[in-house]
């Protein structure tokens, strides 16, 4: 009973803080809403007996990622708001579709029956401890997805770098630079910016 109440509390808070995070005007408030969201996500992991994940969620997301977000917000000057034309002229169309989708999902979810359980029951996990089980599974059964996730991080880094870099070294400028200076490799890169 307590678990159910706790779950409902966490779920509602996640939805509410998620909606607030995208609708508030002040970016710092948005980031703080995301912080609230991360804490309640950690709460959800606790209800699933995943204490390690809950701790990682708090340390990595609430601790590190959010602080980074805040740093970026303070460094970037966000005085001007960027306005882009809406995809769909009327916002009510989107809201209607969203409500319809939510209602349809709520209507079908009661008929949900959990499928067969895998080899890791709660008792088995408790016996080996959560962290050991997760480490073993991740580096054996789920090695391939784990490595692909690592590759995705590399791509995110590369993509972020490409998008953030100032575009001034054009073809001509670069070839001139390469001809005039013997070692253009260090100057032509603006990775440090």
């Amino acid at each position: 009973m307590f678990l159910q109440l706790f779950f409902i509390y966490c779920a509602l808070m996640i939805v509410a803080s998620g909606v607030l995070a995208i609708s508030l005007r002040n970016p710092v408030h948005c980031v703080l809403m995301v912080l609230v969201l991360f804490f309640h996500m950690a709460g959800l992991y606790l209800t699933l007996n995943a204490e390690f994940l809950a701790a990682v969620q708090i340390i990595v997301y609430a601790g590190a990622v959010l602080v980074l977000y805040l740093f970026v917000l303070f460094l970037v000057n966000l005085r001007e708001e960027l306005h882009i034309d809406a995809f769909i002229p009327s916002p009510w169309l989107g809201r209607g579709i969203a409500t319809g989708l939510a209602l349809a999902l709520l209507a079908v979810l009661p008929s949900f029956t959990p499928g067969s359980k895998g080899q890791w029951s709660v008792e088995a996990v408790r016996e080996m401890t959560h962290t050991v089980v997760m480490g073993q599974e991740m580096y054996s059964t789920y090695l391939l997805p784990f490595e692909i996730a690592g590759l995705i991080l590399l791509v995110a880094l590369l993509g972020g770098l490409v998008l953030a870099r100032r575009e001034e070294n054009s073809f001509e400028a670069l070839t001139k630079e390469a001809i005039s200076s013997g070692c253009a490799c260090t100057q032509s890169k603006e990775v440090s910016q």
Partner: peptide, 24 residues
């Protein structure tokens, strides 16, 4: 596997988001 399917999809899509915005 559904997991590889989803991760492959993200790995495909992320570089393209960057490529679309390449010409600033």
């Amino acid at each position: 596997d559904l997991m590889v399917l989803y991760l492959g999809l993200e790995l495909m899509a992320l570089p393209i988001y960057a490529l679309v915005g390449l010409h600033k």
